[in-house]
Design a protein around this nucleic acid. Structure first.
Length: 570
RNA sequence: GCAGCCAUAGCUCAGCUGGAUAGAGCGCUUCCCUGCGAAGGAAGAGGUCGGACGUUCAAAUCGUCCUGGCUGCACCA
């Protein structure tokens, strides 16, 4: 379906093409920097060059000879400098956008459905460690990328991957055993294990001689020694259960949970295969893939003691994914940018072993603190839980201050919606390739460019619509009665949504949608500031209410991509 | 040494498939609630778009070089 926006630019481009006897692409119809100049603009640079004339003159000629009425909905044409500016009539423009949104309903802004499957790997916290704000960025970003691609029509399969074996597990369990910690029922959490892991790390720094003991534990774990195996399975369960809760809270969908333990054996087989195919070779006792000639260094796939490492398992994981999802068209990995070099090596190695399925790496910069990098060693990790609790508490306090009469349930539900908005929006509003400096003080603000700000605009519209229920609507069909510039600004903003979704999906950048949501919220603010909806009469009242409802629908769609709910009240 | 990312207002960031006076938010200075909710809005101060050269009618945007910061680069994950 052609959107209102495309209809306008197409019509203008077509008319210009005809009048000037040249081909004007609709993409050449752009937006002026200031809406006072017009709603659309056409730069005459190319034309002027061809005709060897001054661009301003060309613009003036076009504007003078063009009859606005020839293009439906167009009100006026004017030349400013080298640009021809086009202004739409408010009434019909707004009505057209509302009709678009109403007709599309839930599908507004969504691109044509396609069958192709996309694998999206994200959510890779390890077991036996704490889930911290760094993981939150991954989870929130991954979910948004998935939603974005869904809107663009792809069939997304969300996949998580957890390191449940390896040195860090051995370290944690070794320390648990060594210190003979008493474990109470409430200790059976991933958080508890994460703290143990941190303590173990500190201990080992002071007692490097104990590393041999850890190594021994790791060997016992890898040889499935029954007592250790049992402890491993039990503790892993705590972590996985906790992650499950975290993912659910953040609305991070997982269709298939992969664990390193299920690919480690196959990984070793693949290394043997690579050796046989001479893709890999022995070096200093270890097995590597030499990628020096393409400046990718050497890729270690098996340690000299014969045990596996990350790469060993990732090779097998790629294979397993391809086996379980044989028809996938794209396979995305949402991973910390610090691993981009590693992933280049991995993809190249997969390629050399004959793996020809498409793979894409989506990197994002890490999360740091004002006081410096987060490190379990220094114990300055901001855990997901502490972050969430602080934001929820803050939200609750703000709500109670405004609504003394609300029930506990109402306060809790709304606090949750605001907290999620605050957390997610702050993580999504900036681009992936920017280091995110986590600042609790900033996180605890719902003013300005924040998630709650966006929600507030929607809530205000809801408030108007709710009050309007007592009004008697007289008109049934939408009339082009709109007359305020703020109505048009809002409508044009709504009309731009589909193309922003398309852009964001193409670039895999949820920040495009976050920025759009802010702009839309601002337009909504202008609208209800300037336009007295409930004081309007008859068709105008009806039209404005429908504009408000449509605007709220678009806002809600945009927020949905970001994983942010729109509360009824706040 | 090799590679990747970043550099735009005091701070946090948009804008980057070249185009009209470089935009938000925070903070700061003033205003606006008996008005469809002030988690809002209006106004103001604040910028050599890191630097140089180049391409172009036109560069924050493209290219080259440089500077500064961050991050990777063999037995961690």
């Amino acid at each position: 379906m052609k959107t209102a926006w495309n209809q306008w630019t197409d019509a203008i481009a077509k008319h210009l093409s005809k009048q000037l006897s040249i081909t004007v692409d609709p993409a050449e119809i752009v937006m002026p920097p200031d809406q006072k100049l017009g709603d659309f603009a056409f730069g005459t640079f190319r034309l002027a060059k061809e005709q060897k004339k001054n661009p301003a003159e060309v613009a003036k000629e076009i504007a003078e000879t063009m009859v606005p009425g020839k293009v439906p909905g167009l009100e006026s044409v004017s030349a400013v400098g080298p640009y021809v500016n086009f202004t739409l009539a408010i009434g019909s423009a707004v009505a057209q956008v509302i009709e678009d949104v109403e007709a599309a309903g839930e599908r507004y802004g969504k691109l044509a459905e396609r069958k192709e499957q996309v694998l999206l790997e994200y959510a890779q916290p390890n077991t036996h460690k704490e889930v911290h704000v760094g993981h939150v960025r991954n989870l929130v970003l991954g979910s948004a990328v998935g939603k974005l691609l869904s809107h663009a029509g792809w069939n997304i399969q969300y996949v998580s991957y957890h390191g449940d074996v390896g040195a860090h597990v051995a370290k944690c369990l070794w320390y648990l055993d060594k210190t003979k910690k008493k474990i109470s029922a409430k200790d059976k959490t991933g958080k508890f294990l994460g703290r143990l892991y941190a303590e173990a790390t500190t201990y080992l720094d002071d007692h490097p001689e104990a590393k041999e003991e850890v190594s021994l534990v790791q060997q016992k774990l890898e040889s499935h020694e029954p007592t250790w195996e049992k402890l491993w399975q039990e503790t892993r369960g705590w972590s996985l259960k906790e992650m499950d809760v975290v993912f659910k809270e953040l609305g991070a969908r997982i269709d298939r949970q992969y664990l390193e333990s299920e690919v480690v054996d196959r990984g070793q087989e693949i290394v043997d295969l690579l050796l046989k195919k001479k893709v890999a070779k022995e070096s200093q006792g270890a097995i590597v893939v030499d990628l020096e000639e393409i400046k990718l260094g050497v890729f270690l796939v098996r340690k000299s003691d014969g045990t596996s490492l990350y790469a060993t398992k990732d090779l097998a994981l790629a294979e397993l994914k391809a086996k379980e999802y044989p028809t996938y068209q794209r396979s995305l990995y949402i991973v910390d940018n610090r691993q981009s070099f590693y992933f280049k090596q991995l993809f190249e190695t997969l390629h050399r072993m004959g793996f020809d399925k498409p793979l894409e790496f989506i990197g994002y910069e890490f999360v740091t603190l004002k006081t410096g990098a987060m490190s379990s060693r220094e114990g300055n990790i901001v855990t997901y839980e502490s972050f969430r609790d602080a934001v929820v508490d803050y939200a609750r306090k703000e709500i109670v201050a405004r609504h003394e009469d609300w029930s506990v349930k109402q306060v809790d539900e709304t606090a949750w919606a605001l907290a999620m908005a605050g957390m997610k929006f702050s993580m999504l509003k900036q681009d992936n390739d920017r280091v995110f400096t986590f600042d609790m003080e900033q996180a605890l603000s719902f003013d300005g460019a924040t998630g709650p700000y966006c929600q507030y605009a929607g809530v205000r519209l809801s408030s108007i619509l709710k009050k309007a229920k007592s009004y008697q609507l007289t008109a049934t069909s939408l009339q082009p009665v709109f007359d305020h510039p703020s109505e048009k600004t809002l409508a044009l903003m709504m009309a731009r949504f589909p193309q922003r979704v398309e852009q964001a999906a193409k670039e895999l950048r949820p920040s495009v949608i976050a920025q759009y949501t802010l702009e839309l919220a601002q337009s909504i603010n202008e609208f209800y500031r300037d336009v007295p909806v409930l004081e309007s009469k008859d068709e105008l009242l009806d039209g404005r209410l429908r504009l408000a409802a449509a605007a709220r629908a678009v806002l809600s769609q945009a927020l949905e991509i970001l994983g942010i709910p729109l509360p009824k009240q706040m």
